Amino acid sequence: MTHVAAIGERRRVIGLATAGVVVLPAEDPEAVRAAWRGLPADVGLVILTPAAATALGPGPLEAREPLTAVMPP
């Protein structure tokens, strides 16, 4: 079974925990990249805040796995 994770500013992602999402708060670009590198192998979808997506750059967003979705601003 795959899981869903969310990376980004705590205030934007914390509410997703109530839906069973693995929440990885990251307030700065280095924390975002560290959270991405530390994703569990069973994560199939990563929800990113716009700031987190910018910090990661296009590479992870264009990868086949895990799927990514960026929250609206």
Rank of each mutant, 00 (worst) to 15 (best):
R33W: 04
L39T: 12
D42L: 02
A53D: 03
G15L: 04
A53F: 07
R10E: 15
A69W: 14
D28G: 02
A51S: 11
P66M: 02
A52S: 12
A34S: 06
E27W: 01
P73N: 10
V70M: 02
G38P: 03
P50D: 11
R64E: 15
D28I: 03
A19P: 00
I7K: 09
G8Q: 06
A63M: 13
D28R: 08
P66R: 05
G8S: 06
G59A: 15
A19F: 14
I47V: 15
I14Y: 02
I7W: 15
L67V: 07
V13A: 04
D28Q: 09
M1P: 07
P40N: 09
V4M: 15
A53Q: 04
R11A: 13
V70S: 00
P25L: 01
T54G: 10
A6P: 02
P58W: 10
G44F: 09
L56A: 07
P72F: 06
G57V: 12
I7A: 04
V21M: 03
A52Q: 12
L24C: 02
L39D: 13
T68G: 00
G8D: 06
M71A: 07
I14C: 01
L24I: 04
M1Q: 13
L67T: 01
R11L: 11
T54V: 13
V32I: 10
W36E: 02
G59R: 15
A55Q: 11
V32Q: 08
I7M: 12
L45D: 04
I47E: 10
A17M: 14
P29N: 07
P72G: 11
R11E: 15
V70W: 05
E27D: 09
T18L: 12
G59Y: 10
A31I: 07
E27G: 04
L16W: 05
A26M: 05
T2P: 02
V21C: 01
V22P: 00
R11G: 02
R12Q: 12
I14D: 10
I14V: 13
A19I: 10
P66G: 01
E65I: 05
G38I: 14
R11S: 07
M1D: 13
E62V: 15
I47D: 09
E65D: 03
P72C: 01
A52C: 09
A26I: 09
A52L: 10
D28A: 08
M1F: 14
L61E: 14
A55S: 14
A63H: 14
A31N: 04
L24S: 03
T2N: 03
L67I: 05
E9Q: 04
L24K: 07
V4R: 15
T49M: 08
A55N: 13
W36S: 01
T68M: 03
T54R: 14
P50F: 10
T54E: 15
E30I: 02
A5Q: 11
E9K: 00
R12W: 13
